[in-house]
Amino acid sequence: MSPSNTQLPPRAKAGSKPQSKVPQKKKKKSPFKTFLKFMLIVIILVVLAVVGYGVSVYMKAENTVLETGNDNPVAPEASAKVKPLTMLLLGSDYRPKTGTHLTDVMMVAALNPDTKSATVISIPRDTLIELDGYVPSKANSYYPKFLSQEKNSGLVATDEMKTMFSKYMDVPIDYATVINFQGFSDVVDSLDGVNVNINMDMCYIDNADGTNINLKQGPAKLQGEDALGYVRYRKSSSGCKPRTKESDDFSRNQRQNEVLHSLIDRMQTLGGVTRLGSVLDAVADNMETDLENAQLRNVIATYWNISKENVKFMPVTGTWRSPYVYVDNGELDKAKQALKDEIAGKSVEAVDGADTTNP
């Protein structure tokens, strides 16, 4: 996803000043909530397959996903087997054609080994962050700024993000994982595509980032780039003749769920199992994490059979006044408390009736 992509709400220039907080109608839940649920469930499926389909496949996992961590030791008392962990999950818009690193998905997850449960809080990408020591800006703009400063500051961008979000969410964050959207296309390709039923023609052309969505109504098997366009489509561009209808958040969520279900079906077939190695490669090539290798093994051993009913997704919503989202402080406070309750082993329900059982 490119900063210039008009499929998304406009992004302010770096350093622009926040505008006055004028009450607006409630912003719709972000379509990225479902999108990252998709990414997380794909990874969970990979882990399930690793555990369930033999030593040779597990060795393949060790040579791909597990190499994304580091070899630092993990103290027994810090093991994910006994200690609740918190993790910052970032979905970067990076693709080779764009080279950008805006974090259009930002989630803070807390996992508890005693209850075998997790709480995942999603933050809208355009959230105005106002914290002492930081220039007020959109939440998704900080990671690329920290990346550009790494060479001179000597500070790792993911460490800087952990520090900032620890302050913002009022909980210490142990680890950070960055997944880029190229991984979406690669995972779809590794499973030889997804079967969908396109409910209308879709056309969008953006020469700046190479986006070329041209999908026709009807049943179709989509490969990676087309599947990415299918779940991203918002509206038609001027280069499309004829123009196609716009798509709202609800329709995008339905398409993302449709793709998710198709991927699950393919993963559960024998063909999906035999392609597990390429799925793991797709994840490994598009993911960075500061989890130690030993800790990643601890996480797999502890949470490989986590029930999706025990994974609670809580989106923080707000009001939109271009170019910012002003989050609802009441929801943000509930989200902070939910993370603390998860760490403490207390049960908590998702806010605003968010669906915690269906992808």
Rank of each mutant, 00 (worst) to 15 (best):
S4P: 08
Q7E: 13
L8G: 04
L8Q: 10
P10A: 03
R11M: 02
A12Q: 01
K13V: 01
K13S: 08
A14S: 12
K21F: 02
Q24P: 00
K27Y: 01
K28Q: 06
M39G: 07
L45A: 10
V46G: 10
V50F: 09
V55L: 11
K60H: 10
N63K: 15
T68W: 09
G69Y: 05
D71M: 05
A75Q: 12
A75P: 02
A78W: 06
A78R: 08
T86G: 04
S92G: 01
R95D: 02
G99W: 01
T100K: 02
L102W: 02
N112R: 03
N112A: 09
T119R: 09
V120E: 02
I123E: 00
I129N: 02
G133W: 01
G133H: 06
Y134C: 07
V135F: 05
P136S: 08
N140T: 13
N140S: 12
Y143G: 00
K151Q: 12
K162G: 08
M164Q: 10
S166Q: 10
D174E: 12
D186K: 13
V187D: 07
V187G: 13
V187R: 03
D189Q: 13
G193I: 05
V196F: 08
V196I: 14
Y204M: 10
Y204D: 10
N207A: 13
D209T: 04
L215M: 07
L215F: 09
Q217L: 12
A220G: 07
V231N: 01
R234S: 05
R234F: 07
C240K: 10
T244R: 04
R252F: 08
Q256V: 15
S262K: 05
L263P: 01
R266K: 15
R266D: 03
Q268P: 01
Q268W: 13
G271V: 12
G271Q: 14
G272F: 12
V273N: 07
D281Y: 09
A282S: 15
D285S: 13
E288Y: 11
T289R: 11
L291N: 09
A294T: 14
N298W: 11
V299N: 06
W304K: 10
K312P: 01
T317F: 02
G318K: 00
K334H: 14
K336D: 13
K340M: 14
G345D: 14
N358F: 11
